[in-house]
């Protein structure tokens, strides 16, 4: 079983402070971490490798310093690490990022591809599913449990707002995972020593047969016009009285406002 785990290096949002004057994030000096959801993706891949054998490759697109995150993934047990880095990739939105990742995955080849459900810095949750589309491959998002996995088949639970779906798929398939899936392991000392020496495979535009116009800023259709925090305008009112009176008032008001 060849498994690719897509990871992203993100600023540790727990450590970020806001500049009180400009209301912008102060990214300077903020430590970088592996996107927490991606650690669950990696753990899932490692568990499947332990069960079925095979290789786990971690893949990231980013600047050269993203290598640190790849080494961390190796210290947790990944067999191989690939850094997608090229000036041509700079400025990618989720569309261009997904295209680039898909080209690389096509080159590397895999039966299973794992992603975190979203990154904590952008929170779009688009890159996983879009990558699957570019690969012309099925995807299942928000996986909270892997019920069964074989060489050509997988059955998982997909978390929904009102419960969960059981989804079956043939392989290859791309899966995005939620925290409930598992508990990511700690790195091991031998893994850390191996990670120090690990050779990180580097891939650029020329290595993935990509069209330059589809990459980076040029390949990104997203236009950011404005970023702002939404204002919350909802009115709030506490209903008093005994429980019965509260229920009576609530029903009456809901009826009056045509909600019921």
């Amino acid at each position: 079983m060849d498994i690719i785990v897509c990871i992203k290096q993100v600023p540790d949002t727990a450590e970020i402070r806001i500049n009180p004057e400009t209301n912008t994030l102060m990214r300077e000096g903020v430590p970088s971490i592996i996107n927490p959801f991606d650690l669950h993706a990696l753990e899932a891949a490692l568990q499947i490798r332990e069960q079925l054998g095979g290789r786990v490759t971690v893949l990231t697109m980013g600047p050269p310093q993203a290598e640190v995150s790849l080494r961390e993934a190796v210290s947790m047990g990944a067999d191989e690490a690939v850094l997608l880095s090229d000036r041509a990739f700079a400025g990618s939105d989720t569309w261009a990022t997904s295209y680039t990742l898909a080209r690389a995955i096509k080159k590397l080849g895999a039966h299973l591809i794992f992603c975190g459900k979203q990154a904590i810095d952008g929170d779009t949750a688009q890159v996983g599913p879009e990558t699957a589309e570019f690969l012309d491959m099925p995807h299942i998002s928000y996986i909270r449990k892997i019920e069964e996995v074989r060489d050509d088949y997988i059955r998982v639970e997909r978390m929904m707002d009102d419960g969960y779906d059981v989804v079956e798929s043939s392989l290859p398939v791309l899966l995005t995972v939620v925290r409930e899936l598992n508990q990511p392991r700690m790195p091991s000392l031998k893994g850390k020593m191996a990670a120090k020496k690990a050779v990180i495979k580097k891939m650029g535009m020329a290595d993935i047969d990509a069209r330059e116009e589809d990459l980076g800023l040029r390949g990104s259709p997203t236009q950011v016009k404005n970023i702002f925090a939404p204002e919350i305008r909802a009115e709030r009112r506490m209903i008093g009285g005994t429980a019965e009176e509260q229920v009576y008032t609530l029903i009456k008001e809901l009826r009056e406002s045509k909600c019921l």
């Binding site: 392991r185 700690m186 790195p187 091991s188 000392l189 031998k190």
Partner: peptide, 20 residues
């Protein structure tokens, strides 16, 4: 179990016997 998985039980055991 976490300490085992992270190789801490082998710190002082020679490498030829699986330690660090």
């Amino acid at each position: 179990k976490t300490l085992a998985q992270s190789d801490f039980f082998g710190i002082y055991v020679p490498e030829e016997y699986g330690g660090l």
